[in-house]
Simulated assay, not measured.
Amino acid sequence: MSVDIKDKIALVTGANRGIGASIVESFFAAGAKKIYAAVRQLDSAKELTEKYGDKLVPVHLDLEKPETIQELAKTAADVQVVVNNAGVLIPATPLADDAEQNLQQELTINTFGLLRVAKVMTPIIESNGGGAFVQLNSVASIKNFLGLTTYSASKAATYSITQGLREELSDKGIAVLSVHPGPIDTNMAATGGMTDIAEPTSVVSEGIVAALKAGDFHLFPDSMAKDFGQAFHSYAKEIIES
């Protein structure tokens, strides 16, 4: 299902920096009509507001507080495209003392956050004539990285849920895109110790615009991700996308 961002109204979670801010820029460059920038602190979207004026609407969202997701839906009632980008990475190996605690927080934000955003926003997208739901997953959703074990586990769960959303939303006129970046130049990459191989955020944001227009389900945007995608291709096509 092809979705052109031109003239669309979008919601981007975690929009104040990194990949989220880049998505905002790429969407406006592609002709988006309006974007809701969902952030924990409204002041953090000040730079985007100054740049885009009334076309950029900051809205409060804290994925650890489900009530803010419900409030978000009341404000962003005209949305056609949702990009669930907000997430958290806490380095941990499987036997680390804080692994269980870290996994709990990552599941709350990354996994339950996805479920709650999708639950609330799907009826809105459908009521506005259909559109798209984009989930930022990771190459870590496909392969566990030892130092990022709990993060990998939470992203494996979000990837599985994204597959379920694709099947459930297809009859509602909503395309679903699963995005699997490798190391991208963000604070998250710095936390994971991967800045030396990180690529610009624009490879993800521009890739999303192109993948939505092409009607793709998977996007592997950067160099490392493309290697994953090439190896994963036949399984994805024959098993997941069949």
Results as ranks from 00 to 15, higher is better:
G18H: 01
A175P: 09
N84M: 05
I174A: 02
I125E: 04
A140L: 09
S44M: 03
I239L: 10
K74G: 09
N102G: 04
P66N: 05
G18M: 00
S223V: 14
L56A: 14
L114V: 12
V57G: 02
V134T: 06
A190H: 11
G31S: 06
D54P: 05
R166L: 00
A96E: 15
N137W: 02
N144T: 13
S26K: 10
D185V: 03
V3H: 01
I23S: 06
S2L: 11
Y159Q: 15
V203C: 08
D196I: 12
L89G: 04
T195D: 14
I161M: 10
D185N: 13
V134P: 01
A77C: 05
P91Q: 07
H60I: 14
D196L: 10
G130T: 05
G164F: 13
A198R: 04
G129E: 01
A140E: 10
A77Y: 11
A15Q: 03
G192L: 12
L95E: 10
F220K: 00
K74D: 09
F145N: 04
E126K: 12
M194A: 15
D171Q: 15
D216W: 02
G147N: 13
D43S: 11
V134F: 02
E50Q: 13
G31N: 06
E241W: 01
F217Y: 09
V59W: 01
L177M: 05
V81L: 04
E67P: 02
R116H: 00
N110R: 08
A156S: 15
T13W: 09
I197M: 03
K34P: 01
N128F: 00
I240P: 10
K172W: 03
Y151H: 01
L219P: 07
V204K: 11
V12S: 00
A32N: 03
L177W: 00
S22R: 05
I161R: 10
G192W: 09
Q104A: 14
D98E: 12
S234I: 15
L219D: 04
L56R: 02
K143H: 15
T93N: 15
K213P: 02
E206K: 06
A73M: 10
N110M: 08
T149C: 15
S178Y: 01
E238S: 07
M121S: 08
A189Q: 03
E64I: 13
